[in-house]
Design a binder for these strands. Structure first.
Lengths: 166, 166
DNA sequence: TATTGTTATACTCTATAACTATA
DNA sequence: TATAGTTATAGAGTATAACAATA
């Protein structure tokens, strides 16, 4: 493998994604504080709006978050009347979580407030490029999260790749 | 403002970015573990490669990370011989941090290993779209982080926006 | 006196384990 | 017996404060 090829093929988006997300999150915190929200609340509300009602377990899976953490998250949101927990009629163990009208409104307010943060963090991109970015992110995140089996297979491939490279 | 306009203008990339970055990070952890790296190490190495040598304070600023945290991060990386700390000749208080050859090699290995993670997390996007995403992220992150003054101004604008919306 | 880096410490976030209720 | 959700608790991650060396 030539050095040029290495340059071309081995630069990945992962680190950039994390780096950009961190900057966005740090700036967002101060803007969201007056609304009584934290970035993770916004993520949860966004998922509920975009994907619709779901069980707490479903939410945990989607957010790749531990179930115990979802409890606390929903406690916050429910205390503010932004989401609702209802027992599922089909399976009374389940709680169906849904966005309330108040929650949808608050989410809109938050996104409006975050416009300036986005202007700042994505300052290097013009309007068209931001639209493209939003579209790509939207589609990438709408994919169902991979199963554990897939993740394991993925780890295997990566390990082989590392061995070969050494 | 009409409901349609609200739909159009108030959907922001922040939550999506954080959501996608989290999924990427969780998957990356297992793949990077055999290399003795954690996602944040990779971010630091990536920044050092892309932006070149810098002081610890510079690194803290770039990574939007507390200085005390940078110390621990660099301790890890230096113990593995992936980065080097040298006293600056001009200002002996400063440590100039630079990527070693070993570090550059390890970074390449890591990025290779992460290819399968990216395939999984960005499964909904085709090759072209991933290139576009990489390009957008690359340009967005190469922008200098905003100063505190700018962040404060940004918060003000956001607050005004919230008031108006209520 | 101010700044760079370090150490010690407290705080927050996240995950693991045991419990209640439904199935 | 297994699953959805909850609570209590321990471990990891992150930030705040005091300190040493240099400017």
């Amino acid at each position: 493998m030539s050095p040029d090829q290495v340059e071309q093929t081995e630069r990945r988006s992962g680190a950039l994604l994390e780096y950009l997300a961190r900057r966005m999150r740090l700036r967002s915190e101060s803007v969201l504080a007056p609304l009584g929200l934290r970035p993770r609340h916004l993520v949860a509300l966004t998922v509920l709006r975009d994907a619709g009602d779901m069980s707490q377990q479903g939410l945990a899976g989607t957010l790749q978050l531990d179930g115990t953490n979802v409890v606390g998250l929903l406690n916050d949101l429910e205390a503010d009347g932004l989401v609702e927990r209802r027992r599922s009629p089909e399976d009374r163990r389940r709680h169906v979580v849904s966005l309330t009208q108040t929650g949808a409104k608050r989410l809109n307010e938050a996104e409006c407030a975050l416009a300036s943060v986005e202007d700042e963090v994505l300052g290097a991109l013009n309007e068209n490029e931001r639209d493209t970015l939003y579209d790509l992110l939207r589609r990438a995140t709408s994919e169902v999260p991979a199963t554990c089996a897939e993740a394991a297979a993925c780890a295997e491939v990566a390990a082989a790749c590392t061995e070969e490279d050494r």
